[in-house]
């Protein structure tokens, strides 16, 4: 892995105002608003999950997901303008390029998790060291399928269609996955829909740190399945793309 390349790309990504606002500032602000609305001191959902910690995981997860997806999807843009062709005239291999994009996507998922977690502490979330590790590090690792999804979208989308696809996917995944309406307060039928989305299970990983009845095993299986499926689609596209160009 070319660290220098990765850091240069990270700097360029973070400098993008739109990116930083939508994946760092917005989730942080939403977290504070939601806390004000729903999270009184010591508030808990009917199943006993603390509200503030749960909102923290949801918003950190939402921002991290968006950051990972939109970073991975930049492939579409670089492919569209022909920058990728220029990169093929350097020692960076095609696989190396995708791994670098994946690593970059994961790196970009970190700031939102860190910032929202710090706000969580300020808002009174109290966890022990192991719980914090799961709620931040575990959540971060669970973002992997979204980095892969972003890369897959980047392999299929055109530069013009990229932004609507990413915004639409984030909205759908956030809404259906229960990031906007907490699953704990949603009606049964809605919760069943939520359980199909990878976003529901992304939050489940973070919540497993403190929720009384978390199903971490299922979460990992579902997320792994999504990562594998999107990864295979991306790989397939990569092979046909290489033949075409």
């Amino acid at each position: 892995m070319n660290i220098r390349y990765l850091l240069l790309e990270a700097r360029i990504t973070l400098r993008n105002i739109r990116f930083s606002v939508f994946t760092i500032v917005m989730p942080a602000v939403l977290f504070l608003i939601y806390c004000g609305l729903w999270a009184g001191k010591g508030a808990a959902y009917p199943d006993g999950t603390p509200v503030t910690a749960s909102l923290m995981v949801s918003m950190a997860g939402y921002g991290a997901m968006g950051a990972a997806m939109s970073t991975g999807a930049q492939i579409a843009f670089e492919r569209g303008i022909g920058w990728q062709r220029q990169l093929r005239l350097t020692p960076l291999s095609g696989i190396g390029y995708m791994l670098a994009k994946g690593a970059l996507a994961m790196l970009m998922a970190l700031p939102c998790i860190v910032i929202v977690s710090i706000l969580g502490v300020i808002r009174g979330v109290e966890l022990d060291a192991g719980q914090w590790l799961t709620a931040t590090g575990g959540l971060w690792l669970a973002v992997t399928p979204f980095a892969v999804l972003g890369i897959m979208i980047g392999m299929f989308a055109s530069p013009d269609s990229l932004q609507p696809i990413i915004s639409g996917s984030m909205m759908a995944l956030g809404l259906l996955g229960g990031m906007w309406i907490p699953a704990a307060v949603a009606p049964e039928w809605m919760r069943n829909i939520m359980k199909v989305t990878p976003t529901y299970w992304l939050q489940e990983v973070g919540r497993s740190a403190f929720a009384p009845k978390a199903t971490l095993g299922v979460a990992l299986a579902v997320l792994g399945g999504y990562a594998l499926l999107t990864g295979l689609l991306a790989a397939r596209r990569y092979v046909t793309d290489a033949v075409r160009v």
């Binding site: 070319n2 220098r4 390349y5 240069l8 790309e9 700097r11 360029i12 400098r15 993008n16 843009f77 670089e78 303008i81 022909g82 920058w83 062709r85 220029q86 990169l87 005239l89 350097t90 020692p91 960076l92």
Partner: peptide, 24 residues
């Protein structure tokens, strides 16, 4: 290459730094 393939939001210095980094 023939096309204008530069990334609009990347500076000239960064563009060359990326290519130079990839060439080691």
């Amino acid at each position: 290459l023939q096309k204008d393939n530069l990334r609009a939001d990347v500076t000239v210095g960064e563009t060359l730094a990326i290519v130079a980094a990839l060439h080691g």
